[in-house]
Nucleic acid binder design. Structure first.
Lengths: 148, 148
DNA sequence: ATAAATACTACCTTTATGGTCGTGTTTTAT
DNA sequence: ATAAAACACGACCATAAAGGTAGTATTTAT
């Protein structure tokens, strides 16, 4: 049960944008450099963030990326779901035909309960809080930029 | 971010044992039949449950398996960790050398916080509760045995 | 026009999952 | 004793998903 690198990279990309919000679009090349992700790969990943409405892409010369929402309005859940799709810890692909209808799968309801709790918790952590945590704890320390 | 089939099978195996606690050991063949898992595969999976102290194996003729603890004493977290190892949603394998020491990785502490919340939540759901849920909701409905 | 930027599509490599198979070892009823 | 019935374990394999690369197309400020 892991967050994929896509999810983690997604968060780092947003954090990077939040920390470099100068008014001008930030180049994917710069984000990639800071975050130690290949430029190509990042340019693919960031599409998901754009499609989820978390990031605005400015195309063409002098283009780049900016956050589309305030960091306080972006939750961890949004980020992860943007990158990985809906967060569900079980698929229940095998049963639904038979017992999905019956809704009597005891383990399923247990998993569903956990799933709801996880989503709930993640929806209450915002990018802003992570930024603040970073500014408080990390800014002074010697941390490589890509380790944001 | 999924619970693997190992984790789900593990829970079903324990639930099966809880529901067939007649005083006699339950045969792996019978569990496998009820749960639609191959006998061979199940006999491998259940080892993890035994090693975690959740199940007692009685060897030899007239042997089989029984729960080693009361269902109320078995948490979902124990089951999942027995099957999948320690529950951690991120590895942080790349950074620890550089920034693990600094403990200043902002995303890491965010992930860690979520991870703790998940473990905490899962540790408060017991097998007994799942059994009760099944008895209440599912016993009457037409649910295949393997869909417990 | 053209240089600078993102958008998209196709493909590839590696790793993890989810299993099977065969054989060995222990226990117990007889 | 011994055969039958059970678990134990290691080696192996197929498939899917993750993670990543490369090349081309499209858009836009100047």
């Amino acid at each position: 049960m892991k967050i994929s690198t896509k999810g983690r990279y997604g968060l780092r990309i947003l954090l990077d944008l939040a920390l470099h919000d100068s008014g001008e679009p930030r180049l994917s090349r710069d984000i990639a450099g800071s975050q130690q992700i290949s430029e190509k790969y990042l340019s693919r990943l960031i599409i998901a963030l754009r499609e989820a409405g978390l990031v605005r892409a400015i195309r063409g010369a002098r283009g780049g990326f900016r956050l589309r929402k305030q960091p306080a309005e972006i939750s961890l859940l949004e980020v992860v779901e943007a990158m990985e799709g809906p967060l569900s810890i079980v698929d229940c692909v095998r049963c639904p035909a038979q017992c999905g209808r019956a809704e009597a799968c005891a383990t399923r309801s247990a998993w569903a309960e956990i799933n709801t709790a996880i989503r709930d918790r993640m929806s209450r952590v915002t990018l802003q809080e992570i930024v603040d945590g970073h500014r408080r704890d990390g800014a002074a320390a010697e941390v490589p930029d890509y380790c944001i």
